[in-house]
């Protein structure tokens, strides 16, 4: 046996910069394409870009406010009742959003239907409250919510855009093709949501794999450069 060498594990620095706190939700830890959270709205209301955008913004809004409130109250909420309290807070903001959307446009409210109320059970929001906002400062929680909300909206738009273009030949209601474009009705139907999500996940995993393959080479290059200096 060789003499035991002390193994040095380099601890990854957990503290991140503010920009990184925001960007992680948008890309590296994207709630939909990486964490695969909140599938109910992702599949159900992304049949047009405008629905996807509204849903994304509504969720982001609820996420932002609930993260803010949870972070503010984090010292006053005992762990035994934290889930109940978080849900209460989230449900409040969902109700608020529901009223606001009704006040802005009944049309959008009608097309989103029950899914606004279902933001309550979007595990993304409870997840962020539990895993992040209840343990971090107000500023960081807000940044986290902004990033995750933006990432969620971005993902929903990716879904809604593809589905509306293929399923209706329009984007945000603007016709993109000639009059006799044949819409792929299936894309607007629920099954189209699964097809589109599958395709996007395929693409994202492909990109991730590529990056991971590049990673060792990149680190080797960096080390070389370091030793040269």
């Amino acid at each position: 046996m060789q003499p035991e060498k002390p193994i040095v594990i380099r601890k990854e620095v957990v503290r991140r910069g503010s920009a990184d706190e925001f960007l992680k939700g948008l890309w590296r830890e994207n709630p939909v394409f990486v964490q695969v959270l909140g599938m109910c709205p992702v599949l159900a209301v992304t049949n047009s870009a405008i629905n996807a955008l509204t849903m994304g913004l509504a969720t982001a809004f609820v996420l932002l406010l609930s993260n803010l409130l949870v972070s503010c109250l984090r010292h006053y909420i005992p762990p035994q009742v934290r889930i109940a309290t978080f849900i209460l807070i989230i449900a409040t903001f969902v109700t608020v959003v529901d009223y606001l959307i009704q006040a802005i446009s009944l049309e959008i409210h009608k097309s989103l239907g029950a899914f606004i109320s279902l933001i309550v059970v979007n595990c993304l929001i409870l997840g962020r409250a539990e895993a992040f906002a209840s343990r971090n400062s107000i500023g960081r929680s807000l940044l986290d919510a902004l990033g995750m909300g933006a990432g969620f909206t971005f993902a929903l738009l990716c879904m809604g855009g593809v589905r509306e273009i293929l399923g209706g030949g329009t984007l945000f209601g603007v016709a993109l093709f000639a009059d006799n474009y044949q819409p792929w009705v299936v894309m607007i139907l629920p099954s189209g949501g699964f097809f589109t999500l599958g395709a996007w996940l395929l693409l994202f995993n492909r990109i991730k794999q590529r990056q991971q393959r590049k990673q060792p080479r990149l680190q080797a290059r960096l080390q070389e450069m370091g030793s040269e200096q």
């Binding site: 792929w184 009705v185 299936v186 894309m187």
Partner: peptide, 10 residues
């Protein structure tokens, strides 16, 4: 089945 869902009229 895919075609039936995508292009029901055709």
């Amino acid at each position: 089945a895919f075609l039936q869902a995508a292009f029901p009229a055709a």
